[in-house]
Design a protein around this nucleic acid. Structure first.
Lengths: 125, 125
DNA sequence: CTAAAACCTGACGTTGACGTCAGAGGCAAG
DNA sequence: CTTGCCTCTGACGTCAACGTCAGGTTTTAG
């Protein structure tokens, strides 16, 4: 085992994960409760995470921002972990993609309306 | 008063507004409660709306989809009604615009990640 | 006239991702 | 040893835009 691998396996506590990902400690515990994040436990019961948990939490945040629920993320996690998907998962992936695309279009339309008003009210003191 | 004006002033009940805008009757009542929509009342107490209420409700839906709260929409309604804004309103308009733009960027990033996985899992049965 | 459909007020329920509080340990520093 | 920070497990609170139910009135269709 190399030094690099040893560093990669360094375990961190929940506070460091939370700070690293810019979320609350409560949020990280919530992700575990929802089956998104698995932690080892120290002898005294404290959660211990691998460092890449920070990356994972950031990814969760991105998916939450896109409107996916924790349940959906949990169902799709194997797609990232294993790179393999069944028909149901592929269907879900496409459904989410289409939903997000539709949302982007809606937001863009709302943006256009706001810009329209801004332009009018700026030239119309 | 012309026929056209008479038709424009035709008052409709809440069910017609809801069906026309594709929302629930409950939603329309909620908008009134939040100060977004004002209705006259028939002698028996039923709400009577002008036909353009349908357009207004659709607009509310669009703003809700963009993440604005009913409070914020109420604060910005004068911008649409009068075309006039004070400094505070202009600041809010820009803040919302920027927030929506940021959200569009976030969604686009999430979309790219999903498309990436979809591409991989499609070529990787 | 009567039954169905639509409307009214008021009030509690829902959902998701956490926030927050209480009470009890755990851990390095001085 | 104790001070102070971190962590633990519950468990209740929050917010927004409605859903839903109860119990009653009004309008409409036949």
């Amino acid at each position: 085992m190399t030094v690099t691998e040893a560093a990669a396996d360094r375990l961190v506590r929940i506070g460091e994960v939370a700070r690293g990902a810019g979320v609350s400690v409560r949020a990280v515990r919530y992700y575990e409760q929802q089956g998104l994040l698995i932690a080892e436990r120290s002898p005294s019961g404290q959660r211990l995470y691998r460092q890449d948990a920070v990356t994972l939490v950031r990814f969760f945040q991105q998916m939450f921002a896109a409107g996916l629920t924790s349940r959906r993320i949990a169902e799709l996690l194997p797609c990232w972990d294993s790179g393999h998907t069944d028909a149901e998962q592929r269907a879900m992936l496409r459904a989410e993609r289409d939903r997000i695309q539709a949302k982007v279009d809606d937001l863009q339309a709302a943006l256009d309306r706001l810009d329209e008003v801004i332009a009018i009210t700026d030239t119309h003191p």
